[in-house]
Design a binder for these strands. Structure first.
Lengths: 114, 114
DNA sequence: TTAAGATATCGACAGTTGTCAATATCTACG
DNA sequence: CGTAGATATTGACAACTGTCGATATCTTAA
């Protein structure tokens, strides 16, 4: 395992061996991982791209099913995951539900990658 | 399903109904999702945080097992996933393997979130 | 009230993923 | 050689995930 102060090894460098604190806490890691999990599916990324690039700033859920090419329950499922991750916001108006991107949330996540 | 030009509905706004092209291609969505999948685990995020913040710019794999608190095969497994996602680079020197972050890769991913 | 349509939930299933013990591979050193 | 130690691979298992059909819920219009 961890070696320290090994003398005359072939590579002139040794492992430090000290298990210092991890910069990212366990709790933060879990929360960050949860957002990345929401982003880890191609269908959700395409949904996000449609919603984010909407000229009117929002998109009706009814207009997401056909272009995505998945069943309505599946699209609804993915939208829920994006919503719960804080990546999109939604508003029910009449029969329809309108989705819009949350750019601050995406920026916040992006900044965690330096 | 999609409604268009519905007159006198209660919310004064209708779905557009046109299934125009999705900004993010299916191929790009898959590739991006693959990177986010690599980032979607708390253990991997903590590994990344240790490697990224290393004062010497690199960390020996032997010094990652203990602080992470998982078995050696598990840590090796996660490091492989990070490596294959292009998020870390590695170099074998003697018996040890040294990992370093790939900041350009992280920046590239971050920029995809606007 | 009844009907029609948009969205959400449920139940089930196949595929994927994180984990570890056991084992293999590789490297340096007597 | 052969040994010791670091890392990777394998095999197995439980847990999680994406998908769909069926169904429930909700809203508006007639």
């Amino acid at each position: 395992m961890t070696s320290k102060n090994v003398k005359s090894n072939a590579v002139s460098k040794v492992c430090c061996g000290t298990a210092r604190d991890i910069p990212l806490s366990e709790r933060d890691a879990y929360e960050l991982a949860a957002v990345f999990t929401a982003l880890s599916d191609p269908v959700r990324l395409r949904l996000l791209s449609i919603i984010s690039s909407a000229a009117e700033g929002e998109v009706c859920a009814c207009d997401l099913v056909t272009p995505i090419g998945k069943s309505q329950p599946t699209v609804s499922h993915h939208l829920k995951i994006l919503f719960e991750a804080g990546l999109v916001d939604r508003e029910k108006r009449g029969v329809w539900v309108w989705y819009r991107a949350v750019p601050e949330r995406m920026s916040a996540v992006a900044s965690r990658l330096r």
